[in-house]
Computed example of a mutant assay.
Amino acid sequence: MILEEFDTNREAIINPQDLHDPIEGFPKVAVSCFSRVTFARLLENYDHEVIARTSMANFEVLVYGIRIGDQEIAAFNAPVGAASCVGIIEDLIQFGMEKLVLFGTCGVLDQDIEATSIMIPTAALRDEGTSYHYLPASDEVEVNQSSLPLFQAFLKKHQISHTIGKVWTTDAPYRETIDKMKRRKKAGAICVDMECSAVAALAAFRGFELCHFFYAADHLSEEKWDIRTLSSHEDLDSKDRIAELALQFALLWEKAN
């Protein structure tokens, strides 16, 4: 099968270094989310400036520097979808990023998980295509293995409850059928997203550290889809608090060895 043809050759026809040079002094830690609204509201709270530009085919991505005290964190609005998201992160690695805090919504597969609550994946079921170009074929990929202890300790210190489990990553949201959902739940998935398995595979391939987490949005069930807080304009205060947590953890992680 074509997705089983993983090529170990680290040199591709087009490489990030063919398009971008490293940026001297680029922040070692970056924070990113998928919601344009949440990202814009985060920037409003801090002094920031554009420190890099990159693009993915038909859109430009601005990378901002946020300086807090003697620390500087890079921040960018990640594109939705595994291929685009991974492509932009490749460029950030080339600029000089070594650690990434990435967060966004997910659909929950358990109605007891409350809306806008934090979920941390420990593994991702690989139901997209991008990850197979970064790791050999397998059903799943580990996520957050190096960052999990520190992130959990951070959440405990701030008295933030969270749920841990596997995520089902798919790049075809309109093909999340009931039978597929049942199989993914049986495999241990508690939520669904569109990027996690691909970003985790990229992290393993390129050797950068990743802290990827979600906040619960819509609920997928056998009876009826419940959109809950999926809209970018719903429950903004809670999402602002999550964005602030991500930034504060990025600052903590920047100081960690």
Rank of each mutant, 00 (worst) to 15 (best):
E5S: 12
E5D: 13
D21A: 15
E24W: 01
V31R: 00
T38V: 12
N45E: 13
H48K: 04
I51M: 10
T54E: 03
A57F: 12
L62D: 11
V63E: 05
R67F: 05
R67K: 15
E72M: 15
N77V: 04
A78E: 00
G81Y: 06
A83L: 12
V86K: 02
V86Q: 01
G107S: 05
G107A: 11
V108I: 11
Q111T: 11
E114M: 07
M119I: 15
I120A: 04
A137H: 15
Q145D: 14
Q145S: 10
P149Q: 02
F154V: 10
H158G: 02
I164Q: 11
T170H: 09
Y174N: 11
Y174D: 03
E176K: 12
T177C: 07
M181C: 07
A187L: 15
A187H: 05
M194F: 04
C196D: 07
S197K: 03
A201W: 06
F208C: 11
H212Q: 06
F213R: 08
F214M: 03
S221A: 12
E223N: 14
W225F: 15
I227Y: 10
R228S: 00
D237R: 06
R241M: 08
A246F: 05
A246G: 14
L251V: 04
A256P: 00
N257A: 13
